[in-house]
Design a protein around this nucleic acid. Structure first.
Lengths: 182, 182
DNA sequence: GTCTATACATCGATAGAC
DNA sequence: GTCTATCGATGTATAGAC
């Protein structure tokens, strides 16, 4: 079961998340295609299992971080880990953070895990000075833009992601509470 | 021919760029599916015609702008027009600026038009103080991030795009030539 | 140029034997 | 739980008559 999901990720990496087929997956795990229905009620159920698994991987990664000390530094450590996670597997990034499968919506249970990740990011950003939801929204969008540009235009490189820290500083400087600029 | 492409855009808006089928397109224009091969050698050729057409639409829009006066203001006017163009038709945005069709690459001729758009943006940003390719790259990525967040999470709204001007100012302030901060 | 007919492939899903 | 067999839908593309 877990190994089927792992193999599904391999195929998704190779052929894109949308190019994943049950025939190919069955062949890869040494089964016939109908036998997969013992484990998943439908293809969407497989995607849902992958969605949950991907978020589990991400949470595991984020839980291992040391986020003590300066809170701006904590944001940077967190975002670096997040960005690395995203760019190292474009297919996974697509399933977790975009809506590439027409008709697929994660189950409530799976979606809950995804919300945990987001709320941790929000807490860190708040602690680092981003007060409003608006400022958090735009920061998240900016980072997602970096990730997508990196994946699309320079896969495996760092032409965009290497500027993450600098952009984070810029953003936190700009939107820190209005009392006084640093 | 042009009307077939226009109808193809309608279907793409309704069912997604990847959900466009030649059967449906033929039915919509009052033909049988094989008859489309009179106009396009393959489905990819249709996508290529759409790609070229979308870039033509964009260039037309950008050519109508008044970009005189202050160069920072010119950047804002340009980027506002670009962002509006992108969010008003997510399917078109997908075909023009992402790679949603496995195996489809625009022809050299079509791609050339896309490069014209980019080079205009680059010229404006350079004139407004962004010296390095790196700074331009990140700015473009940030704007693309805003667009994607807007389309994905608040289609038809402006929760993200309304901050475009503010982010543009922030970015140009940060990366203007190092002589002195404004 | 447009049609009918069809080839050919892929896919998800189900029925029923073992 | 796994299999064989098959259904039914969808999709692109081609052959050949008109």
């Amino acid at each position: 079961m877990a190994s089927i999901v792992a193999t599904a990720w391999e195929l998704a990496r190779a052929h894109g998340i949308g190019g994943l087929s049950l025939h190919a997956l069955a062949r890869e795990v040494g089964l016939r295609q109908p036998s997969l229905y013992t484990y998943f009620d439908s293809k969407h159920a497989l995607y849902d299992a992958m969605f949950a698994d991907g978020n589990r991987q991400l949470l595991e990664r984020l839980d291992a971080l040391e986020l003590l000390g300066d809170r701006r530094e904590a944001v940077k450590v967190f975002m670096r880990a997040f960005v690395n996670f995203a760019v190292e597997d474009p297919a996974r990034n697509q399933l977790l953070f975009q809506r590439p499968i027409p008709g697929f919506e994660p189950s409530a249970e799976s979606y809950e895990r995804a919300q945990v990740v987001l709320s941790r990011a929000v807490d860190l950003l708040r602690a680092a000075g981003l007060e409003s939801q608006t400022d958090v929204d735009c920061f998240v969008a900016m980072v997602a833009g970096l990730i997508d540009a990196q994946i699309s235009n320079d896969p495996g490189g760092d032409r965009w992601t290497r500027h993450l820290d600098r952009l984070t500083d810029m953003y936190l400087d700009e939107f820190k509470p209005r009392r006084r600029r640093q």
